[in-house]
C-alpha cells in the first residue's frame, strides 16, 4: 500500500516544525500509529524514505518505545498492570481470568482482532489496584474484578 498523501504531508510538516528529519522521527511514528493502529515494516520503510533516514535508524527509535507497536494490535488494547501494588491486590488472578475468557496471555491478540493484552507496570492507578488502562482513550479501570472484566469485554468494539 502506498503511503497516504495526508500522512506524507503530516511528516513533512513535522520535519519543518520539530527541527529536522531526525527530530521528527518519534512524532512520525506516532502519526503512523494514530492513523493505522500500528507501524508495519512497509510503512516504516516508506516513512523512513520520506524522512531521509534509514529504516534501521527509524526502527531503532520505534523499538525503543513500548507504546509504538511494531505488530498489529487488537481494536482494544488492554494494558494490565503487573507491578507491585497491583500484584499485592490480585493482578495475577485478573491475568488468568483474561486468559480463561479470551484465550490470550501477555503480548497476544485474540484471533478475531478484538483484544490485545500487554503487561505494563505501573499504570499510575495504584489506588485502584488491580488496574489496567484500556482502549484508544487509555481509560483507567480498576479495581478490576471478574464482573468488571466481563463488562469491559462485553462493551468493547
Amino acid at each position: 500500500m502506498t503511503l497516504p498523501a495526508d500522512l506524507e504531508t503530516r511528516i513533512r510538516h513535522l520535519v519543518a516544525h520539530e527541527g529536522g528529519p531526525r527530530a521528527a522521527m518519534l512524532e512520525t511514528l506516532r502519526s503512523v500509529q494514530a492513523a493505522e493502529g500500528w507501524v508495519s515494516d512497509e510503512r516504516l520503510a516508506q516513512v523512513a524514505a520520506v524522512l531521509g533516514v534509514t529504516p534501521a535508524e527509524l526502527d531503532g527509535v520505534a523499538s525503543f518505545y513500548s507504546l509504538i507497536f511494531r505488530r498489529p494490535v487488537g481494536r482494544t488494547v488492554i494494558l494490565l498492570c503487573d507491578g507491585a501494588s497491583c500484584g499485592l491486590n490480585g493482578a495475577d488472578a485478573i491475568r488468568d481470568a483474561i486468559r480463561d475468557r479470551l484465550g490470550i496471555g501477555y503480548g497476544q491478540t485474540t484471533p478475531d482482532g478484538r483484544f490485545t493484552l500487554i503487561n505494563s507496570a505501573c499504570v499510575g492507578g495504584c489506588d485502584r489496584a488491580p488496574a489496567a488502562v484500556v482502549g484508544p482513550d487509555r481509560t483507567l479501570v480498576g479495581p478490576l474484578t471478574p464482573a468488571l472484566l466481563e463488562e469491559l469485554i462485553g462493551g468493547a468494539p
Binding site: 507491578g83 505501573c122 499510575g124 492507578g125
Partner: peptide, 11 residues
Amino acid sequence: DEMEPGAFKDR
C-alpha cells in the same frame, strides 16, 4: 512521565 511503580500522584 510518572512511571515509577507505586507512583500515582502526578496523575
